[in-house]
Design a protein around this nucleic acid. Structure first.
Lengths: 222, 222
DNA sequence: GGAAATAAAATTATCTATAATTTTTGAAAC
DNA sequence: GTTTCAAAAATTATAGATAATTTTATTTCC
């Protein structure tokens, strides 16, 4: 019971590195040197290389043979691409999840929304937001679809964190509440439509200036 | 020019293994033993392990810590899941690709369709079919989206090959022609609608009996 | 002073070796 | 004949070592 399975070192390394990349602690283009990372994790570089393959598949790192691995960079076009992929895939997921949603799940999702609204910083908001999406989508039971969505969420979060390096301001998530209301009434199509717009909007509106504090929030979150 | 970059051994191994899994030469559930594969490719098992991580990410293999890697198995539910994911993602791609399509590309796609119709076996058909889809979708220029679609195509092909182990019969692909006609006339919505149905249908109809020769073709191809 | 060439250092990709774990084999008990 | 257990074999995961390549630093030449 208390014995953790403690999966492979490679998976632990890939999780930690993915988190750092998403949070922006590792900047786009930064080189990932296998020996240094191996030293940090007190291992040889073999599991580090395996972790790299995982990051590559997730689109978080780019590897060039013999030239090493670096943190993937991303531009606005890719942010939009990710948003559109998320939109269509999350709609697909919600359509299948709808019939399996229980009041308990919807209550938990509402709680996640409240936590998001009350979040003091962007990381807390992101966690709550992701929880909301996961709660209402997981019941679709489509593992491959959910895994893809998870990877896209990570990519979205990268953008979110890079845009909101400081100065998070609280906001009320009307989309989430509208989605929940529609789901509670069994209006799946309506919920799907709101969800689609909600996600698709990411990266569409005016971007915050790099120097100043971001003003327009609706274009970044989702 | 003649000098090939000859990328890493790991990527070569993952390509070959992926191909074998898709073609059904490696059965679902079959164990992939790193030492044996290493011996076959005249390498150590280190690059083999890296290849495993790639296959895992593509959904072609499943790895359990300390228990090894085996070929992923798939059931009808997963075939449908893949089909639905392909449907929404290919529609997204075609919507973005449409404006960049040239008559030359459409001609090449028509040629691919003809080759598919004339294909003598299921492998030739699959290759032509994939070429068709790639031709009309690639111009969207969304790398991440195209990579996802490619992985889903591989999963679809697995199902196709497992269903049509023998007894391929020629057929005329009306969907492909209708899609091309719509694209030629600039009717993107119509093309997208046909494409969606075309792909979504996979795994829906009656399945061929394992013992006999498959009769219903419309439900398997796409 | 700056470009080109060269030497030194760092880094990647791979191999061989080893410890830990799982699977298989085979005998003993029922 | 089947189940249980233990020893043997096979296999995984990781470490440590090495050759090849790339990057960085240094020197030379213009």
């Amino acid at each position: 019971m208390s014995k953790e399975p403690e999966d492979t070192i490679a998976s632990r390394i890939s999780r930690v590195l993915a988190d750092r990349i998403v949070r922006g602690e590792l900047a786009p283009g930064a080189r990932l040197r296998q020996d240094h990372i191996a030293e940090e994790f007190q291992t040889s570089h073999v599991p580090v290389r395996e972790a790299f393959r995982r990051l590559e598949a997730q689109g978080l790192a780019i590897s060039e043979p013999r030239r090493g691995v670096r943190v993937a960079s991303f531009d606005l076009a890719e942010v939009r691409e990710v948003a559109e992929m998320r939109a269509v895939l999350e709609v697909l997921a919600i359509r299948h999840a709808a019939r399996h949603l229980t009041p308990a799940i919807l209550d938990a999702a509402e709680e996640a929304t409240r936590e998001g609204d009350a979040a003091a910083d962007v990381h807390a908001w992101e966690e709550a937001n992701r929880r909301f999406h996961r709660l209402i989508l997981t019941p679709c039971g489509m593992k491959r679809l959910l895994a893809s969505i998870d990877d896209l969420h990570a990519a979205s979060a990268r953008f979110l964190f890079s845009a909101w390096q400081s100065g998070w301001e609280k906001r009320t998530d009307h989309d989430h509440r509208a989605i929940l209301a529609a789901l509670r009434q069994g209006r799946t199509d309506e919920a799907a439509a709101i969800l689609q717009k909600h996600v698709q909007w990411i990266g569409r509106g005016p971007q915050p200036a790099k120097t100043g504090i971001p003003r327009e929030t609706f274009a970044i979150v989702g």
